[in-house]
């Protein structure tokens, strides 16, 4: 709880991370909503919102290709931006937040090393996750019991989460070491007490995110402008708290 309190005290770091999430939302939402409104407003779909809207407006011509390309590029940009921001965040977690210019300077300074660390830890994580998926898939594939694919899917997801937490733990330690040593450092050590605390915060952050996403969808898929606003707010609260808990897990290792 000490780590959580510390992050809460200096909430600017969480706010920076959340603002990136919000920027991602706006980068997608503004063009999409403009397009949807423009494409539908004068037509049949301006009065009747039916399933025909999707093939007649969205899937016509190059619409789907354009939206897919746009989403992939936006996604990639924000992914790199997240790695960039982590340099400033980790520096601030070790010391304290010293203003946005300093934050940006530290982010830029650590970006190449952090990018390497990300790639180094991501590749084995992806390979191991794929192996776990393939193995559980094979077990499911060979069982006549059709409940087995569901069971194996749960097993596979659980393994993926555990692997993510383990690699995230190493990745986080490596980033702290890298900042402290001013050169790229790796870590493969597990320290029990810290690891458990880290894992608890990480799991809580994901659980919180999923819970609020589910709540948001419940509101969004029902009628009413009020519910729409509520759905949006719930998701954003979920994201803010998820980042708060995530940073608390990092702080624990600082």
């Amino acid at each position: 709880m000490k780590a959580l309190k510390s992050v809460l005290k200096d909430h600017r770091l969480v706010t920076i991370l959340y603002l990136q999430e919000l920027a991602l939302f706006l980068a997608v939402f503004i063009p999409l909503t403009t397009w949807f409104h423009a494409a539908s407003s004068k037509t049949y779909f301006g009065t009747f919102f039916t399933v025909d809207f999707f093939p007649e407006i969205l899937a016509k011509g190059s619409g789907l290709l354009a939206i897919s390309t746009f989403l992939i590029l936006t996604f990639l940009f924000f992914f790199l931006l997240r790695i960039f921001l982590m340099g400033g965040i980790f520096d601030s977690l070790i010391g304290k937040y010293a203003g946005f210019p300093h934050f940006l300077h530290e982010s830029a300074q650590h970006f190449p090393r952090f990018l390497i660390l990300f790639l180094v830890y991501s590749i084995p994580l992806l390979i191991l996750t794929a192996i776990a998926g393939k193995t559980t898939g094979s077990i499911a594939q060979n069982s006549p019991n059709q409940a087995m694919p569901v069971t194996m899917m749960l097993v596979s997801r659980s393994i993926a989460i555990i692997l993510s937490i383990v690699f995230s733990f190493w990745h986080t330690n490596a980033r702290f070491k890298t900042i402290l040593n001013h050169k790229t450092k790796f870590s493969l050590a597990i320290r029990g007490k810290f690891f458990l605390g880290f894992a608890a915060y990480q799991l809580a952050s994901v659980a919180f995110l999923l819970l609020f996403t589910w709540l948001s969808v419940q509101f969004l898929t029902n009628a009413g402008t009020g519910l729409m606003v509520a759905g949006f707010l719930l998701m954003q609260i979920g994201l803010y708290v998820r980042n708060l808990l995530k940073l608390a897990s990092y702080k624990l290792l600082s």
């Binding site: 999430e21 939402f29 993510s164 994201l239």
Partner: peptide, 27 residues
């Protein structure tokens, strides 16, 4: 149908947020 269009855009945008968050778990 403006409200439905806005909802649809929010839905897709939040989906992108969620996917971004899940795929950047270890960052």
């Amino acid at each position: 149908t403006g409200s439905s269009m806005t909802k649809l855009a929010i839905f897709v945008s939040q989906l992108v947020q969620l996917v971004f968050n899940i795929s950047s778990l270890s960052i």
